[in-house]
Structure formats: structure tokens, C-alpha cells
Design a protein around this nucleic acid. Structure first.
Lengths: 113, 113
DNA sequence: CTTCATGCGTAGCAACGCTACTTGTCGCGC
DNA sequence: GCGCGACAAGTAGCGTTGCTACGCATGAAG
């Protein structure tokens, strides 16, 4: 998958990963890779700055710890982050529905049953 | 809908609109607005440069005409544009499936039962 | 005559993610 | 002991992309 397609949706992805529990940066990368079936393999230079952005915005909080002599910064969702995630989810739904109407195909058109 | 969410998908949208027939810039904006139910209301400063980008890339071709004393530049999909659109569609499908797996919108969590 | 819809276009900006690089520990193979 | 790869965090600089804010012109409506 072309990487820059993510533009504007990375934050939401990060929040979604952290929703399931606090993780440190490196683990987040692995979680994204695992849960996406390998489609998402983001470089550290993408993740770390994004995480700091989210922290500055108050959507995540971090704590340092040392595990086996290695420094770890573990991030967890704040309340504001949870709320933001809900908004991002709604935004994603609208966005994907809208674009899907043009690019067609993948939309289960409100017709489950 | 936040505008910059489009990032990276605008070209695909444009190609998709032109797939149904040649249109001039202004009409493209209206077509996007109409087909999206008003969700997509893009300013000319977004559309025109994008169209020129696509033309430079050989994905669309333009012809000038004068209608009622007004100059119009009409764009139509080239063969390469059609092929590119197919690729964009595939890319969109993969992208929305991947992000959807995290933002969950329409995906129940891997069917617990 | 002014305003609005139609119609095209550019300049400059800001956001975002990527590439490439650095720093450091730990464990394994040679 | 030494090098290398996995683990772990980070920064600097760049390019792409869309947006805001303009400018120009015509025709119809008030």
C-alpha cells in the first residue's frame, strides 16, 4: 500500500491501537503491522513524531520505564483521546462512505440482513 | 467533512467523475457536490491545479471551447487515465479495508461467536 | 450600476508523512 | 572480543498535496 495514502488518518489509527491498551512506540508499530496483516509497516520516523503530536494535543499520555536496560516510553489514551477517537471514527465513516460513492466497490450499502 | 481528509484521494475522485463523461472544471465541482450529497464542496483553487496535475501526468486531456462568450476547458479521461482509475480503485479498496479494520465502522470485531 | 453566477487561473502557505540518519543496549555467532 | 541484528527512541530536512485568498472576465438580474 502506498504510504502517503494515510495522510490525515494516521492519528486515528494510532488512537485506535492504543484503545486496546497502552503500548510503547515500537510495539505500536508491530501492532499496526500485525493487525493490518502486514499492509501497514510504518517507519519509526513516522510514528514517533506523530505520537509526540498526539501528546502535545493531550490525546495520549506517556510514561517512561526501563525494561531490561532499554528505555521505553509507553503511551496511553487520555479521556480526550477517547473522545477524539470517537470523532475520528465518525469522520472516517463519513469519509469512506463519500469516497466510496465515487470509487464504488467496497461499500456494504446499509444492506446487511 | 474536514477537507484535508481527502489528501491523496482527490485524483482518484476526479478520475471517477470524468469516467462518466467529459466535463469542464466548474461542472466537475458541481458534479462532486451533487454526487456526494453536498459533502464535497471543493474550491476552484483545489480543482484547477489538480486537473492540471492530471493533465501533465497524461491521465486526462483537455480541449477549449467557447460557450456563450465564456471560455471553457473540458477534460476527458485518457486511456492511461482509465487504467490509473482502476488502480486507484483497487488501492482505495485495500486502503479502506485496512483502515476500516482499525476504525471499525462497519466491521464487527472478527465475529466473536 | 452593482451584484451574482459562471468560468478560469495563480501565489503562497501549512500540514503531514517519508527518507535518512543518529544514539544506545542486549544477545548471538564467529 | 567483535560485529551484527533486534529492540528502542529520536531528529532534520524534504516533497507532496490541498487550502486560502486573490485576480480576471462575461452575462444576466436587480
Amino acid at each position: 500500500m502506498k504510504a502517503q495514502t494515510l495522510h490525515g488518518h494516521l492519528d486515528a489509527l494510532l488512537l485506535a491501537v492504543l484503545e486496546r491498551g497502552a503500548l510503547h512506540g515500537y510495539a505500536i508499530i508491530e501492532a499496526l503491522r500485525a493487525r493490518s496483516g502486514g499492509a501497514l509497516d510504518l517507519p519509526t520516523g513516522t510514528i514517533y513524531p506523530a505520537l509526540r503530536r498526539l501528546e502535545r494535543a493531550g490525546l495520549v499520555a506517556s510514561t517512561w520505564s526501563t525494561v531490561n536496560g532499554r528505555e521505553r516510553r509507553t503511551y496511553e489514551l487520555t479521556d480526550a483521546g477517547g473522545r477524539a477517537l470517537a470523532g475520528e471514527r465518525a469522520g472516517w465513516r463519513e469519509f469512506s462512505a463519500t469516497v466510496g460513492r465515487f470509487l464504488g466497490a467496497d461499500e456494504p450499502p446499509t444492506a446487511p440482513a
